[in-house]
C-alpha cells in the first residue's frame, strides 16, 4: 500500500477494514466469513464478491465497517457467559418436533 516505509503513516493510509457476512445457497442467515480492506462500501461489496464468493458460496452479501461492531470484552468472559454454563434445561432439546415443521 505504501512506499514511504513509515509504519505510523502506513497504518493510517490503509483502506478501512470491513467485516463480510454471506448467506449461502441453503443458509437461512448471513454468517461471518472474514474481513477485507476497501475504500468505501461499494468497493467493499465488490471485493467481498471477488474474495469470498468465487466458488458460488453465497447468494447474498452484507458488508459492515469493522469499527461499527461493538465486541464483547474477552476479559468479561466469566460474568458474560459462565452463568449459562450449568443451565442445560435452557436448551429446548427435550421436545419432539414433528418432521413437517422443517428447519427450526
Amino acid at each position: 500500500m505504501t512506499q514511504d516505509g513509515n509504519d505510523m503513516t502506513a497504518a493510517k493510509r490503509e483502506w478501512p477494514l470491513w467485516e463480510v457476512f454471506i448467506r449461502g445457497q441453503h443458509g437461512m442467515s448471513h454468517r461471518h466469513v472474514g474481513s477485507l480492506h476497501a475504500a468505501d462500501a461499494a468497493m467493499a461489496m465488490k471485493n467481498a464478491r471477488d474474495v469470498y464468493t468465487r466458488r458460488y458460496e453465497g447468494v447474498s452479501i452484507w458488508v459492515v465497517p469493522s469499527v461499527q461492531i461493538t465486541a464483547s470484552n474477552p476479559s468479561d468472559k466469566g460474568p458474560m457467559f459462565d452463568p449459562a454454563d450449568d443451565k442445560t434445561y435452557r436448551h429446548p432439546t427435550f421436545f419432539d418436533i414433528p418432521d413437517d415443521v422443517g428447519a427450526m
Binding site: 500500500m1 477485507l36 480492506h37 476497501a38 471485493n47 471477488d50 468465487r54
Partner: peptide, 12 residues
C-alpha cells in the same frame, strides 16, 4: 496487485 483484494479481483 496494489492490495490483496485488487490482486484477487484482477486474477478473477
Amino acid at each position: 496487485g496494489p492490495a490483496l483484494e485488487e490482486d484477487i479481483a484482477l486474477a478473477n
